[in-house]
Simulated scan of single mutants.
Amino acid sequence: MVDATGRTTVAADYFQGYSVVGIIAVIGVLFVAVAFGAGRLLRPVVPTPEKLLTYECGVDPVGEGWAHTQVRYYVYAFLYVIFAVDSIFLFPWATIFAAPGFGGVTLVEMFIFLGFLAVGLLYAWKKGVLEWT
């Protein structure tokens, strides 16, 4: 923008970039709102007792809604996720490690990362989490 003296204002140029982002965000929100509204208006609504019944894995619900589960299954799943994420970080590290000039630094960083994971695994082992009894 040009002010009264003929100079362009830096603030106007700066906020013009944000106005584009704001307009795109508003258009995105409107698009989602219109899609949800159209879905609500166009779908058939025929509630029956069978549709309102809780359905899980093809088994009809019997008894109360509370069930006892073993926490160890979640712990094993959590440990799997931790080591899966670790393996995801190992592949890019291996490619960077081969690049010239990155060998020593990336090697130290990876050993620090693996050290944190090893301390967590050692803690879980000391607490007896990894025992299947």
Rank of each mutant, 00 (worst) to 15 (best):
D13R: 14
A94N: 04
H68G: 15
F97P: 00
A67K: 13
I27L: 15
G104S: 13
V46M: 07
F78A: 14
A33D: 05
E109H: 08
C57T: 04
A25T: 13
V108E: 10
L30W: 03
F102M: 08
A77W: 09
T5M: 08
I23V: 12
F113S: 06
H68E: 15
H68N: 15
L30F: 10
P61S: 05
C57L: 04
P92V: 02
F15V: 12
V10K: 14
V21C: 00
P49Y: 00
W66R: 15
G39C: 07
F78P: 01
G104W: 11
G101D: 05
R7V: 02
R40E: 13
I88C: 10
T8I: 07
G58E: 08
I112M: 06
G6H: 04
F116E: 02
W125D: 06
L121S: 05
S87Q: 05
P44M: 11
G17S: 08
A94F: 05
V75R: 00
V108D: 10
L79T: 04
F113N: 01
V26M: 15
V26Y: 03
G115A: 11
I82M: 10
F36V: 12
W93H: 15
F111S: 10
F78S: 13
T48A: 11
L130G: 12
A118M: 14
V81M: 10
V59N: 09
D13F: 07
T48I: 10
V46H: 09
